[in-house]
């Protein structure tokens, strides 16, 4: 990429309020997760019944939960958990879905049709229902939950990659590369993938948000993160029983989920505006 084009891309980016706000919110959550990995103001695995359900004080900025744990520290650990879940779920989808989509775009035949039909079927079935199915067999747990979201993401990335790759395949530079005898793998990696990268990056941002939402939902239902590990969804589940006496407990973790998902969605939309304005984002989860 030449220097002037890079500069104009950056200038374009700064004029997109959704990109700037999305980047800011996502960065905020990411830094919070990073800080939590280094340390939290209070430990989140200790129980202190004497300090339970305190209102916000100078010592505990957001108060404490029903086990006397510092809410701010729990929120920070929850951010770390959400980021980790998002990375794994999107990572699985990218690692399998992108090669599968590239393969499906470059080859034709029954096997490709079968693979795309299977991905249609997985795609038509929400991640959260797949997760319920897997939890039924292998038991509730964070590994199974995130695996289910990852499998759903494989279908999403296979479709997006194939669509973007098919757009590039008809272009002259691809035909030219094939004509001079470059092997299909080299064409896929050097010519097709770079041109599909924009669509894949944008979708990855959206799927990250989907993964955070799904994990929170599953943990809220008791099918995801198990106690005592902190998760925003789990915190909401705990808070619901205290709703009549301590309503604020139910407000804070939900707001955290909203900020993270809003940030990632805005970032995805903003990236789309800058990188590939005609792209349609696939939204489901």
């Amino acid at each position: 990429m030449s220097g002037t084009r890079q500069k104009s891309l950056i200038r374009k980016a700064l004029h997109r309020p959704n990109l700037v706000l999305g980047g800011f919110l996502t960065g905020f959550i990411f830094l919070t997760a990073l800080a939590a990995a280094i340390g939290t103001p209070y430990p989140t695995d200790g129980v202190s019944i004497a300090e339970r359900l305190q209102p916000p004080t100078a010592a505990h900025w957001l108060g404490t939960d029903s086990l006397g744990r510092d809410l701010l520290s729990m929120l920070m650990k929850g951010a770390q958990n959400a980021m980790l879940m998002g990375c794994v779920a999107v990572g699985i989808g990218l690692a399998v879905g992108v090669p599968a989509g590239l393969y499906a775009a470059m080859r034709k035949g029954l096997s490709v049709d079968a693979v795309m039909r299977l991905s249609d079927l997985i795609f038509a079935f929400p991640a959260i229902l797949t997760a319920v199915l897997i939890a039924a067999l292998y038991g509730p747990g964070v590994t199974n939950a995130i695996l289910a979201v990852g499998i759903f993401n494989i279908a999403v990335f296979a479709r997006v990659t194939r669509g973007a790759a098919l757009n590039v395949m008809g272009r002259q530079f691809v035909t030219a590369a094939a004509a001079i005898g470059r092997p299909p793998i080299a064409i896929a990696i050097h010519h097709v993938l770079p041109n599909a990268a924009g669509a894949i990056i944008i979708q990855a941002t959206i799927q990250f948000a989907v993964a955070i939402l799904a994990e929170a939902g599953l943990s809220y239902l008791g099918l995801g993160v198990q106690p005592p590990d902190p998760s925003w969804g789990k915190m909401l589940n705990d808070a619901q029983t205290l709703m009549f006496t301590h309503p604020m407990q139910a407000v804070v973790p939900g707001a955290a989920i909203m900020v993270a998902v809003l940030g990632l969605n805005l970032l995805g939309d903003g990236l789309r505006d800058v990188l590939d304005p005609r792209l349609r984002i696939v939204r489901s989860g």
């Binding site: 959704n18 939902g217 009549f244 989920i257 909203m258 969605n265």
Partner: peptide, 22 residues
């Protein structure tokens, strides 16, 4: 619409209960 996409349905449900029931 961006806000609506970002608010998890179970949290929105809890908020509705907080406001209209509690």
């Amino acid at each position: 619409s961006q806000l609506g996409l970002a608010v998890p349905n179970f949290w929105f449900g809890i908020l509705l209960i907080l406001i209209f029931a509690v």
